[in-house]
Design a protein around this nucleic acid. Structure first.
Lengths: 159, 159
DNA sequence: TATGGATAGTTGAAAAAGTCAACGATTTAT
DNA sequence: ATAAATCGTTGACTTTTTCAACTATCCATA
């Protein structure tokens, strides 16, 4: 009978450097937690042949917000040209489709197909599980507080 | 007389996508805040010909913790080979130096030179200012809370 | 209602960053 | 002694990022 090993962030190896002043730096902490989470996230999404990026795009396409590619690029902090190739691939797989903007025909509104929607729902569940694994050190209340602070930092009290 | 423009995160443009479900995703929020902060950080560090990466390495080298390259790589979530080239450059600039590990002569302990230390102190002040700018939406208490949660997520209550 | 300037998406090239396998030197285990 | 593992390094390869052009379309204004 194998011992039950809970998937966790690898904080095992000598973290003596925790004492360095840089461990008080918000930028560093954000980068490190994001890096650790990304590994779990991408691992979880691989099953659906998605990565964090394509998952995010699919998520936006699956919303009722009718986002344009430009809006996606801004929102995801990506270059517009990166959005192009992500959507190219998702479209080729039949998961999303482009439609011309209603008021602005230059813009293209990206929406998920039925297949895309279905895949997203599955991937979303996996991503949620990965997030839980990444934040295993925090209680539910703490996770909510963390998200609230992150949103407030990004968008102000309105978030 | 020009109007005083406070440097801030560009949350101005239509953030209608805030309503998307992905805005509740911790991984997304971490990535986005980190991306926004990185821009300010790198801009602030450019004056010293440093980037986030080299700044982090210099910070660790400047500590009294005598980190090896391997420990730096682990701590900064980088590949050991990436550390090599960052240190190569810092060493070429006379900011850090490599010394053989005392117990293990395979390992190399990286430490800041006097110049490196001096440069780091200046860069640190700039980085702090950049962090404040990036977290302008949060109060001092909230910033402390955010950092505390990030540290706990990474290293548990011990952090 | 033309005309000029801006903007959306796309393409392609170049630079930067990340991944990975191999190697010599050294350490650790047997 | 010998074998296996580890540290830093190199070099190849892939992926990601950045950026400048280009077409089509929109917007402002003369």
């Amino acid at each position: 009978m194998a011992t039950e090993v809970v998937e966790q962030l690898d904080n095992a190896p000598a973290e003596k450097l925790m004492a360095a002043t840089i461990s008080q730096d918000a930028g560093f902490l954000l980068a490190k937690l994001h890096a650790a989470g990304s590994v779990l996230n991408n691992r979880a999404l691989a099953e659906f042949e998605l990565k964090e990026r394509s998952y995010s795009v699919l998520a936006l396409a699956n919303s009722e917000l009718e986002p344009t590619q430009r809006e996606m690029a801004e929102f995801l902090s990506l270059d517009p040209s990166q959005i192009v190739s992500i959507i190219d691939e998702l479209e080729k797989r039949g998961l999303v489709m482009r439609a011309p903007g209603k008021q602005d025909r230059r813009a293209k509104i990206v929406s998920a197909t039925a297949e895309g929607s279905a895949l997203f729902r599955q991937a979303e569940a996996a991503a949620r599980a990965a997030e839980t694994a990444a934040l295993t050190g925090l209680s539910g209340t703490e996770i909510a507080a963390l998200k609230g602070l992150l949103r407030k930092a990004l968008w102000g009290p309105a978030a």
